[in-house]
Computed example of a mutant assay.
Amino acid sequence: MNLSNRLKKLNLSGVFPAEKEKTNVNRSAFFALVRKEFTDNIRSWRIIILLAIITLTCIGSLYTAVTTIQDAIDQSGENGQQIGKDSYLFLKLFTVSDGTLPNFVTFVTFLGPLLGIALGFDAINSERNKGTLSRLMSQPIPRDYVLNAKFVAALLLNIVLFFSLGFLVMALGILILGIPPTFEEFARVFCFLILCIAYIAFWLNLGILFSVLFRQAATSALSSIAVWLFFSVFYNMIVQMAAKSMFSSGSITNQEQAINAQGSILNFMRLSPNYLFSESTTTLLSPTVRSLGPLTTRQTTGAIPSPLPLDQSLLLIWPQLTGLIAATLICFAIAYMLFMRQEIRSN
């Protein structure tokens, strides 16, 4: 009798029922932790206030965008439908503003990190200070389930929020403007929402990392906000000052040197998650953007000024998206290693 027949005869699916039962129990425990964390986030007043602010600001940005687009359609007269088809008018719901309020993308860039930090800065240290972490660890569940469940629950909340807001903006845009999106416009908005989730996941993992690293929630919150302010406000200024001192007007004598200098500045700027997100959203929601770096005259000679198809836009932002995901995974890996090595004692 060969080995396969012996395995069939032994019926190994029933030899280790205890192992299967343990796996099912662990899976149920993980989903129970995720459900508990998701419910706690929804019921938290801190998160409710942030969600309300994000929702109201997005509705306000939609109103300004619709007003601007409606004025453009009214000025175009009978050719409004043709303008909507030719100029990706539906995507302007997320990028256009009349100046009274920032657009949808600007609000996500500013408020998205705050939401991620608010969901993660006290994920572990609050449980430790309350004395509930040691009780969780005394249960027959793997230690990493606690950290993984907190991340998954916060990520699910972000997915529900931003897909709901994105579809709400599209639905109101269709009702008010009367111009339905094309399949490519819908796909671009869908990819933009996925990009928003990846961007906020970085700040969520950064908050979780500081929550594992520091015992006090206030310290982890201030550290996360300090990193956010550094990349949002100061990093661009530092890079521009360094570039001004390194590449003075006398050191650049030809076009090739100017392009190399500009490329070096862009590489330093792309170390910021905010800049990576800004480049990616600009390319996705503005199909006329054909390059994210400096081009020579030879490269632009003969180029047809037409919008890029979706697959080419995705190829163009693939390094930026990979960088965001890599930064997110690095933060989560560091938090995971620190949490698994920490000693947890009951108070």
Rank of each mutant, 00 (worst) to 15 (best):
L3I: 15
N5F: 12
K8C: 09
L12K: 03
A18K: 10
E21Q: 11
F30N: 09
R35F: 06
F38G: 02
F38D: 00
F38T: 01
S44E: 05
I47V: 14
I49W: 10
C58V: 13
V66S: 13
V66N: 09
D71Q: 13
I73D: 10
G77A: 14
I83N: 11
K85P: 04
Y88L: 03
L89H: 00
F94S: 00
D98S: 14
F104K: 07
T106D: 13
G116Y: 11
A118Q: 10
A118D: 07
L119T: 08
D122Y: 02
A123P: 01
N125H: 03
N129R: 08
K130A: 08
S134A: 15
R135I: 09
I141K: 05
R143V: 01
V152I: 15
A153T: 08
A154L: 04
L155K: 11
L157C: 10
F167K: 13
V169T: 14
A171E: 11
G173K: 14
L177R: 05
P181G: 06
V189S: 02
V189R: 15
I194Q: 06
I194C: 09
C196S: 05
A201K: 03
F202R: 03
L206T: 01
S211P: 04
L213D: 01
F214W: 01
A217G: 08
F231I: 02
V233T: 09
V233A: 10
Y235Q: 05
I238S: 11
S248P: 04
S249C: 05
G250V: 10
G250M: 04
G250D: 12
I252R: 01
I252L: 07
T253Y: 11
Q257C: 02
Q257H: 02
G263K: 09
I265G: 00
N267H: 03
Y275S: 02
S278M: 12
S278H: 05
T283N: 05
T283F: 06
L285D: 04
R298L: 09
Q299I: 02
G302D: 07
P305Y: 06
P307M: 02
P309K: 04
D311W: 12
L314A: 02
L316F: 11
W318I: 07
Q320N: 14
L321G: 14
A335N: 08
A335Y: 01
F339T: 08
E343P: 01
